[in-house]
Design a protein around this nucleic acid. Structure first.
Length: 226
DNA sequence: CACCAGGCAAGTA
DNA sequence: TACTTGCATGGT
């Protein structure tokens, strides 16, 4: 569709005008951002902040520091983030890869090509496409577009996508029609999450939505999809 | 009380 | 291949 680029730019402009910069990702270091990306899987960010605060308070908030502590200790620290047993394993899988392949040096991993980085992340059990891309965009600061459930839901309700499109299809939709710009991708994804939370939940609450008159279908909520 | 949150993998048919 | 389910805390 030839109008796709126009729609996407319009969408970004509408969201930015309404909400302004979102200041993602709230993290002091790339390491903290990477850890946060795993901890925030299907979890509210405020819970993740508590977990990260706990991790920092140990003074062992590093690749080696976290790997060296017993699993039960790590699990107890990240408990507020939910799924703590699962996330303990996922975090360790990630840290073990950095330790094994890059001598524990995160900067060395982030020096890799984007495609290499992505493949390595996706090969880790517990790191899927959204977590991988979040790490690449927000921690490694490479231009890659992060897709999530809100991205899909918003585009779907406005009939920009069909339900048979994959994660990579949606990612490609954005990346092939927008300039490769870390800051743009950073802000765009954050704004999608922002408007998704406020206006594009399962039970639509569309009055006042900045995207009310946007897109090929403008405002057209569908109650059957998730 | 129900529902949601910045997912992913494993199990089932 | 295409659904479903488990994982879990904390806020609205």
């Amino acid at each position: 569709m030839a109008n796709t680029q126009q729609y996407l730019m319009e969408m970004y402009q509408l969201l930015y005008e309404r909400f302004g910069p979102q200041h993602w990702w709230p993290g002091d270091t790339p390491f903290e951002v990477m850890v946060g990306a795993v901890l925030t899987q299907n979890t509210n960010w405020t819970n993740v902040e508590k977990a990260i605060k706990n991790l920092k308070s140990t003074g062992r908030f590093s690749v080696k520091g976290l790997l060296d502590m017993p699993e039960e200790t790590l699990a107890a620290l990240i408990r507020p983030a939910g799924y703590y047993n699962l996330k303990t394993k996922r975090l360790r899988n990630l840290l073990e890869m950095i330790m094994r392949d890059y001598d524990g040096r995160l900067e060395a991993f982030f020096d890799e090509d984007t495609s290499t980085m992505r493949e390595k992340l996706l090969s880790i059990k517990g790191i899927g496409p959204e977590t991988a891309d979040s790490i690449i965009l927000y921690a490694a600061e490479r231009p890659i577009f992060v897709v999530d459930a809100y991205t899909y839901r918003i585009l779907s309700r406005h009939e920009m996508v069909t339900d048979d499109m994959s994660y990579e299809d949606l990612q490609e939709l954005f990346m092939s029609h927008l300039p490769e710009d870390v800051q743009l991708y950073n802000e765009f994804h954050a704004l999608i999450v922002k408007t998704g939370k406020s206006f594009c939940r399962k039970t639509p609450l569309c009055e006042n939505c900045p995207l009310q008159d946007w897109g090929p279908a403008r405002y057209l909520p569908k109650y059957t999809e998730n």
